[in-house]
Each structure stands twice: as C-alpha cells, then as structure tokens.
Design a protein around this nucleic acid. Structure first.
Lengths: 301, 301
DNA sequence: ACATCCATGCAGTGACGCTACATCGTCGGT
DNA sequence: ACCGACGATGTAGCGTCACTGCATGGATGT
C-alpha cells in the first residue's frame, strides 16, 4: 500500500477526474489509472466506477480516500518530527491569494518571513470561483481565500484558518451626492449604476442581499473582479461599487461609506490540506500570515 | 518517504540491530542499512549512531520511529476501511502462545474461529524470557504472553489486551503430607524441594516472593519451563512446584492447593503491535481469544 | 594477536512504474 | 444520425530503483 497511490486517489477525488489529477501530480493519465488499478487490486474492492465518460469513487473508494488523508497527515507529522531536530526550519512554501488579498497580505508576509532565513515563499495570485478554492490546495500549500458572510467551506479534508473579517463598504466618487455622508443605508442606493464581480465569485451575491433590503434589483453595468480596477472605474464616475474596507480605499478619488442596516462583509481564510498543515515550514509561514492579517485588520487605513 | 522504510526503522529499534531486523523482515542486513541511509538522507538528520559494534537510534531516529507507528496505524486503518466493504473478513493471522497458555487457549480458539470461514489462524508456541515477549510482535500478529503479578509491559508502541488472571497454586503429589489440606500458607512449605522455572522467565521470582513471606530461601532442585513436565515430576515425587490453576491440574497424581497469606498469580495478556491491531481479521481473532479466555477463567476445572 | 561479529560500501540484476501510443466508450454539434 | 472530441484504460518499451552477494572496516573477547 503505497502512500503515493493513496495520495493519487485523494487527488482524483478532489480534482474530479483522472486527467485533472494527473496534471496536478505531474503524471500522465495512464499512470494515474494504473495506480488506481493496482490499489483496487490490492484491497480487493473496486474503488472507482464509470459515470458517463468520467468516473466517480465508490463508497469503498471514498472511505479509502478519507483514510488516505490520515495517512498523509501521519507521514507529514513524521517528517516534522525529524525537522524539529534541524537547527532551523528550511524549505519552500507555495502561497496563493486572490488579488485584493494578495495586495494586502503578501508584501508584509514576505518581509516578516525573510528574517527567519531558509524559508522560501513562492507567491501566486489565483482568482477562482468560490467552489474552486478548495481544489487549489492540491497545487498550492497555503491558499488565501475569501467567502461572503454566511458561506462555509466544505469541511471534508480541509483545514481552515480564519485570517480576518472585512466589512464591505459602498465606494462612491468624491463628487457623488452621497460622498459627504458618514454612512449610507440600502434605501439611499436605489437608482445607481453598479459595478459588481462576476457570477459565482465570492462576494457576487452580497450586492443582491443589500438590494433586497431596499426591495429593488440593482442595475449592474459592469462586472469587474479586480477591486483596484473597479475602484478606478468608480473614481471616474462610471458607477458605484461594494469594496472591502481594508483592501480598497487607496484611490484619492473614491470615498468608502459604511453600510447601515445590513451586515455586509467577507471573511478571508487560509485554506490548507491537513497534511501540508503539518509541515514545519508551512506552520511557520502560517503563523506569520495570521500575524500579518491581524495587523492589517487592526490598523485599517 | 516510504512506509516500508519507516517500518524498517521501527523494526531496527524493537529488534535492537540491523541484522536482527533484517531477519524479521526477510531481507539482508545490507538492504536494511541502505533503507536507513536513504531515510536519513531524505530527512537530513542522522537517525542512527554506532555504539560498539552495533548501533542505536538517535533522538531524531527515536522520534521518527514513534511517528512511524502512527503511520503504520493509519495505513492499516485505511486497509480496514476497505476490508469493511468485503462481505466477510478474510486473511491469515499468526498467533503464538507460551506452552501452558497454548494448551489452554489455542484449541478452543481454533474451534471458535473456524465457523467464521475465510480466516486462517497459524499457531506457534513461543517460550521466551519476560523481556523478549514484546519483540515477538514483529514476527507474530497476536502474542499470548504472561507476566507475574506486579510486572508491567513497556507501554511504547505495544497494545496490551488482558485475557485472564490465573492464581498460582502449590502442586504436590497426592501422597504428600499436605495433600489433604484445602489450602497452605508459606510457612508450611519450608524444607521442600522445589521445581521452578528458568531465570528471567515470567513467574521465576514469584517463588522467591512466597519464600520471603516465610523468611527462608527455597531449595530449587530443578528448573523446568514446561508446566506439564513439571507436573509429571511433581506426580513422581521429585519435588513440589507452583502451577497456574487453570492450566495445570490435569494430572491425576497431583493436587493443587491454594496459597493463603500471599497473593501469587500471573496475568495472561494478548500483545499486539498497534498497526496489526487495526487489521479487521486480527480484531475478529482477538475478540474470539478474549471470549475463549473468559470461558477458561470462568469455568476452571 | 587472532578470530568473530556486526554494520556498511559497491557492483550486478531483477522488478516495478512511468511515458508514449492505440483503443474503446460517451457526449455534444451540425 | 453521423462525426468529432473528450476522457479513461490497456499494451509495449524503457528507465530507475531496491535488493542480493561479496568485500571492507571497526570493535569485541579470548
């Protein structure tokens, strides 16, 4: 019973297919298929079943994949047990973040980790739909993800470390009629042009929730995922938008107005696979990330 | 990080050397040495250090061996998770027992397991010194071992399942002056010839404890490990002996007399490695063994 | 001082897993 | 309804890696 084969099974489940899993594992689909076949032969139970032109794990396969997580955790714990005897933690950690989170957190993270020495942090920005964040943990060690208030990550085989909660404010141009107010309520926002994010992305339906509070449907004229672009559009008078308080606000032509009457916000979490969460270097980086997030939330601009 | 290499490290620790571990694992010492070298190279820490002409695990090696137990447990749990989807548990389980325990427990164990079908039980008798019982778990799945009152098994990486406690009675020939008594006290036993077990074996020092209760040192004339041989010698008038109540007593020429005033007994346990204890077939056999032991202790002859 | 025991290094060989390619079944498009 | 595309699975060939066998070095006890 090879740990690599178990890992492969786990990846096939999380990626939803042989081909996708092969891409993540840097293998050919054939190799993945052979590993599954060997594993199935060893335990004497079919682990996968064809459905359409893809496949799905059987109940036994699902149980084995669950157990595979524990195996991976135990193996990484073993590695960490030895790494504790090294004078200082060493290695490289891959961190990804959605754009606005990356702008807020990655620079201070790197400056905080640098003096530790020996730890290499590889950053990347990954903007994906809400449902696709967990699967990123197969390619990246620490995934900085965000979710709107109320949404929850699937608990299965995923470690979630909360970083910060960020209110969503209404961003208006400085010459807007509401710009002088110190806060606005949903009713003030009828008959406005909105700049929203793409469907399926984390804070897409927050705007809907705000609008239902005033009984109208918002008029969405643009769909921009990158908040800094949205901010520039707001400043230029092409509409108003919902922007996170700590991340946005850098643009001189934009005013951020707190929303009264509705609770609108998003939570930023770090997502990790349980096994990578056991790695010593990963834990060091994660600690730094938590500290950086606390600073960012406690000292908003 | 291979589970087999971790297993090897664990075995080197429990067997106390490369050669012994190689014998247990059916490998050459060279292969074991190479596995350790590869493992050490992978974690970047020396796992073993030479001491005399043998070797010993370093602190890091010890920590890794501890973690290796958890890995093995997780792997076996994974196997069991799949085995649960098989219609009935299948496989072979190796059981060993010291002689008297084997005579008492193995026959009913086999008859109880047989109707389950698909489970093969391979029995062997293993009479070793008290300290050597735990190491047997590397070669045998379930080790039926015994220990005198007060002794404890080393907790490290060993699962202990108590089976029964058995008082030690004084065995005398039927024509002995004490044969008519319904119990004896230590003072009655001065000036007797004793048949004891070899030094280092489980109940060796019980006789000493009984003797100190009467202030004398026992006169040991024979050292016989097999209780049925000792029983035959007692019947022939060559001395008296301490025999376990449930196991002995089959010989018509011997009377068993309970000891008053001192608590003399032994405990019979099943010893398993934590990982083999997770195997489904092993658990089935173990359940049967516990039931058999309860019957044997509850219905003494 | 020598024989013995134990762990380790090195060359040869066998097995195992991967890549590349071909095949089969299934699903959309015209 | 056919055809093209996609996704998973077998097969041949190859490379790699781990094990065996033997030789070496160090430590022990007679």
């Amino acid at each position: 019973m090879d740990v690599r084969a178990l890992e492969t099974l786990r990846t096939v489940r999380s990626q939803g297919g042989v081909g996708a899993a092969a891409a993540v594992l840097h293998l050919t689909p054939s190799a993945v298929s052979q590993q599954l076949a060997a594993l199935s032969r060893e335990v004497g139970v079919p682990l996968t079943e064809r459905v359409g032109r893809g496949l799905r794990l059987t109940a036994a396969g699902d149980a084995l994949a669950d157990a595979a997580v524990d195996v991976a955790v135990a193996v990484e714990r073993a590695r960490a047990a030895c790494a504790a005897f090294l004078e200082r933690p060493e290695g490289t950690v891959r961190v990804s973040a959605f754009q606005s989170g990356a702008r807020l957190l990655l620079p201070p993270l790197l400056t905080r980790v640098a003096p530790l020495g020996g730890i290499t942090v590889e950053c990347s920005d990954e903007d994906v739909a809400l449902d696709d964040f967990p699967a990123l943990t197969d390619r990246v060690d620490v995934v900085v993800a965000h979710r709107p208030d109320g949404a929850q990550w699937p608990a299965a085989g995923l470690r979630v470390v909360p970083l910060l909660r960020e209110p969503l404010d209404v961003a208006v141009p400085r010459d807007h009629p509401l710009a002088g107010r110190d806060r606005v309520s949903p009713g003030d926002l009828d008959d406005e042009d909105w700049i929203a994010v793409r469907e399926g992305f984390p804070v897409a339906n927050v705007l809907g929730a705000v609008a239902t509070a005033s009984g109208t449907t918002p008029r969405i004229v643009h769909r921009i995922n990158d908040f800094s672009i949205a901010e520039a559009l707001v400043a230029a008078g092409h509409g108003i938008s919902l922007l996170p308080r700590f991340t946005g606000g850098g643009h001189p032509g934009v005013r951020l107005l707190p929303l009264a009457g509705v609770r609108a916000g998003r939570t930023v979490d770090a997502l990790l696979r349980p096994d990578t969460a056991e790695r010593l270097v990963v834990r060091r980086v994660l600690e730094a990330l938590v500290a950086v997030a606390a600073e960012a939330a406690g000292r908003p601009r």
